[in-house]
């Protein structure tokens, strides 16, 4: 029997994880994305998806959408840690608002001829994916939707000759007339 030679007491924690989508409004200045990403890597938080783009160019505002997982306490920490960064204006937990729409865009390349090609086209139609490029032996489909829908579509394409996928990551916005 191998006993550890040192007497240590390391605490385990097993709270269940949750997935949350956060919208973060930031001043668009050099280094701001590095700050946000550095926060996640430095403190050991997860990033499932991250999208960023300038949304109001006169005011130099960018909107970052982050999908993250963690225990409820960790999620709360993430929000506070983001909020206290100097260039961050607002952090909204879209998951908690329960009124958020989330969309992702993917471009999916499928190669095949004959029956699989026809089947791919049929499924694309069912998923409201558009053909944005075609050759005699391939298609590129463009599909938007929530993450699950896109993942499902990609799974279906796999046996039909999936070549590669480019996904944008999640963007989210609240329902109704109010801004964040």
């Amino acid at each position: 029997m191998n006993q550890p030679a040192s007497a240590y007491f390391i605490e385990d924690r097993h709270d269940p994880n949750e997935t949350h989508t956060l919208s973060v409004l930031v001043q668009n200045e050099p280094g701001v994305l590095a700050r946000v990403i550095g926060l996640f890597s430095g403190r050991g938080y997860n990033i499932e998806s991250l999208t960023v783009s300038e949304t109001e160019s006169q005011k130099h505002l960018s909107r970052i959408t982050i999908v993250t997982t963690g225990t409820p306490m960790v999620i709360q920490q993430i929000k506070h840690q983001l909020d206290r960064m100097i260039p961050v204006y607002r952090v909204v937990d879209m998951t908690l608002t329960k009124r958020a729409i989330e969309r992702e865009l993917a471009m999916v390349k499928v190669r095949g001829i004959g029956e699989p090609r026809v089947e791919a086209l049929r499924l694309a139609d069912a998923f409201r994916a558009r053909v944005i490029d075609a050759t005699t032996e391939s298609f590129v489909f463009e599909i938007t939707g929530n993450t699950d829908k896109i993942s499902q579509f990609i799974d279906l394409m796999r046996p039909l000759g999936l070549v590669e996928v480019a996904r944008t990551g999640v963007a989210a916005i609240g329902r109704g007339s109010e801004g964040m």
Partner: peptide
């Protein structure tokens, strides 16, 4: 050990940094 820290108390926490809370 955090799960054994002052187990039966109500805690008030004053801090200027919201990220220190909880």
């Amino acid at each position: 050990r955090t799960d054994a820290f002052s187990p039966n108390s109500k805690k008030i926490h004053i801090d200027i940094d919201p990220s220190s809370i909880n």
